[in-house]
Amino acid sequence: MSGDGPLSGLLVADFSRIVAGPYCTMLLGDLGAEVIKVESPAGDDTRTFKPPVRDEESTYYLAVNRNKRSVALDLADKGDLVLARRLAHRADVLVHNFKPGTTERYDLGYEQVAAANPGLVYCAISGFGTRGGAALPGYDLLIQAASGMMAMTGEADGAPLRTGISAIDVMTGLHAAVAVLAALNHRTATGHGQLLEIDLLSSALSSMINQSSAWVAGGVVPQRMGNEHPSLFPYGPLPTADRELIVVAGNDRQYRTLCDVLGRPDLAADPRFASVGLRNDHRDELRPELEAVLATRGADEWAGLLTRAGLPCGPINDVRRGVETATRLGLEPVVDVEGVPMVRNPVTYSLTPPRYRHRPPALDNAGESIRAWLASEVSAKEPLDA
C-alpha cells in the first residue's frame, strides 16, 4: 500500500456513496489508509450532482472523495460479487451505507464477512437504524425534517428551512470516523474486530446538543428564532450604518466590554441587563439601545473597535470571503491534489500530517489493477501495489 501517515498499512473497503460514508473514508484516507472505493457501473450518485462543475466533474463529488481509488463492481454479477467478497475478506475496515438487509443478500453482511475476517472493523451507516426504521431510506433533507432540525431553523414567522449544507451527513461521517478509529484501537489491544452501526437520525439528535437537550432534559420544544440564540443576547447579527455585524457577548465580561466600546456603560449597570439570564429575558428592551449606537458607524469600523477590545465579532461572509479570510489568517485552507483544488483536512498534526496522495478518482480509474489483485491467490493481507 502506498503513502504514509498514522493509518498507513490499513485497507479500507469503501462500499458507501453520496456523503456520510465517503466523508468518513476520505478522512481515513487523509491519514494514510488505502481506500478502495467500490462503485456500481453507474458510479456514485454525487458524480451527477451538477452544477457546479470543475472540468465537467461534479464539485460535490470532488469534495468528499480524495485519497481513494475506484473500482466498478456490479454486485448483481456473480464474478464481480466474488471480487467484492474478496475485498471485504482482505480489508481492515469496511464502510457501507446500503439499506439494512441489503449486504446480507450478497453475503457481505457483518456476520458473513467476519467469519472469514474476524479482525474486520465493519461500519454500517443507515438512515433510521436497523429496527423499526430499517426499510426507510435515509437522506440528509429527510433526516433534517424528521429530527426537528428544520422545525427550529428559519425565521420565527417563516417556514422551516434546511441548513445550507448536508449537515447531518457530515456529522454522521465524523461520528463514523471516530467510531472506526476507536474500534481499530480496540483491535490493536485485543485482535478483535467489531460491528459499528450508526444512523443519521441518532447522529442528528446527538449533534443538535443544546436543542435536543432542551426537550430531553427540560421539556422545552425549541422553536424557530431566526438568527437569535435561545439562551444568549446579544449573540448574532445586529444592524450597523451599512450592513449587519455578528456581535457575540457570551458572558457578563464580554457584555461589559461591548457596552464600554459603544460608549454606553449605563447599559452594563442597568439591573435589567446585569446577567446572561436577565439580558435574555429583556432582549426586546436591550436590542434598540444597542442598535441605536451601532447605527452611527459602519460594520468595518465597529468590527475594528470591538476586535481590538477583544470582543468576538465579524462580518457575514459568503463562501468566497470565508476562504479568503482563512487564507489571510494563515490557515492555508486550500490544497492542490493532483491538480484539483480542495479544502484541506482541518486538523494539524505535529508529527503525522494528512497526506493528499490521490485526487478524487474517475469511475473505475484503478479497476484493472484492483481486479487483478483481488483475482490473485495472494495472502489476504498482501498489499495492493500503487
Rank of each mutant, 00 (worst) to 15 (best):
R131C: 04
D157H: 07
A241M: 10
H282D: 11
D260S: 13
R187K: 05
N317G: 01
A156F: 13
R105Y: 05
L27M: 14
V38S: 00
L142W: 08
L286A: 13
R371H: 05
P360Q: 10
R162F: 00
R308F: 00
K68Q: 15
D281L: 15
D199Y: 10
G250D: 07
P100C: 13
A182V: 14
G133L: 11
A134Q: 14
S126I: 07
T59K: 01
I370D: 01
G138Q: 04
S213D: 07
P346Q: 07
P333W: 06
D270I: 02
L73N: 13
W302C: 01
I246T: 14
G164Y: 07
V293T: 09
Y349E: 03
L120E: 01
N280H: 14
N65A: 12
E382D: 14
M342S: 08
R359G: 04
L363W: 06
L94I: 11
D284M: 06
P137S: 09
S212A: 15
Y61G: 00
P312G: 05
G193R: 10
S202F: 02
P51E: 08
R224N: 10
Q112L: 05
I316F: 13
V248Q: 08
A84W: 04
H96Y: 12
Y61W: 01
V64P: 00
P353G: 09
L245S: 10
R187N: 07
I370V: 14
R371I: 03
T325V: 10
R256A: 15
R371A: 05
A167Q: 07
E228A: 15
R162I: 09
R320A: 11
M225G: 13
P333I: 04
V35S: 08
P346H: 06
L31F: 03
E244P: 05
L278T: 00
Y61T: 01
L142G: 10
A156K: 14
S376R: 15
Q112F: 00
V378G: 14
D364P: 03
S275I: 09
L27P: 00
A167M: 14
A91G: 11
W215T: 01
L161K: 03
V121W: 11
E324W: 01
N210H: 15
V334Y: 02
R357M: 12
D242A: 06
L195W: 03
L201C: 09
R86D: 13
A33Q: 13
L161T: 01
P22I: 10
D30M: 08
F49Y: 15
D364Y: 07
D30L: 08
S166P: 12
R131Y: 06
G138M: 07
L200Q: 13
S147F: 07
S147N: 10
S126K: 11
N345M: 02
A217P: 03
